[in-house]
Computed example of a mutant assay.
Amino acid sequence: MARRDISGAVDFAYLEGFAMGDQTVIEEVLALFREQAALWTPMLDPGHPGWRDAVHTVKGAARGVGANALGEVCQRAEDGQASLDEVKTALDTALLDIAAYVHEQALRSLKG
C-alpha cells in the first residue's frame, strides 16, 4: 500500500492541519478510529437496536478525522436517504485509505 492506494475518502491534509503536523497525535487518532470501527460495524445492521446511535457516532468520528464522504453518508442514513450498507461501504473505504496512509507513514519513518 502506498499513497497511490488512497482514494480520497479521507482528507489527511485536514487531519494533519488539525493535529498541527504532530504525527504521533495523527497515528493515535487513526488507531482509535480503527478500533472504534470494529465496535461500530456490528451495530450497522437494521436489526440492531442501536444502529441509529452508531450511525450518529460514526458521523461525528468521520468528520473529526476528515472522512467527509463517510460523514455525509451517515447524515443521509440518519435522514432515511441512505442505507446502512452504504454506510458500511463508506466506512470500509475510509478504513482502506487510513491503512494506506499509515503504511506510507511507516515507510517514511524507515527511510528517516
Rank of each mutant, 00 (worst) to 15 (best):
A69M: 06
R4T: 12
A37G: 08
L32I: 09
A90P: 04
G64I: 01
A82G: 09
G47S: 14
P49K: 11
L15Y: 03
L32K: 02
G60P: 10
G17Y: 06
G50L: 15
A69G: 14
L96T: 09
N68Q: 14
E86A: 15
A54E: 12
R76N: 11
L30Y: 04
R52P: 10
V25S: 04
V10G: 00
A100W: 01
D92W: 03
A13E: 14
D53I: 10
P42E: 05
K59F: 02
P49M: 06
V29K: 00
V73D: 06
F12M: 05
E104C: 07
R4G: 06
V102N: 05
A67D: 01
F12K: 10
D5C: 09
G60H: 11
P46R: 15
T93G: 03
L91F: 12
A38T: 09
F33G: 01
L39Y: 06
A37S: 15
W40V: 05
I26D: 01
R34P: 00
G112A: 14
K59N: 02
A77I: 07
A94H: 10
R76Y: 07
T24R: 14
Q23D: 12
M20T: 11
G66T: 06
E16K: 09
W51S: 11
V58G: 04
V10F: 00
E78R: 13
G21S: 04
T24I: 07
G71K: 04
G50E: 15
E35T: 06
E104W: 13
I98F: 00
V102W: 01
L107D: 11
V25W: 03
P46L: 12
E78P: 06
Q105F: 03
V55L: 10
R4M: 06
A37T: 07
T41S: 09
A19P: 02
E35Q: 09
M43D: 11
G80T: 11
W40C: 03
K111Q: 13
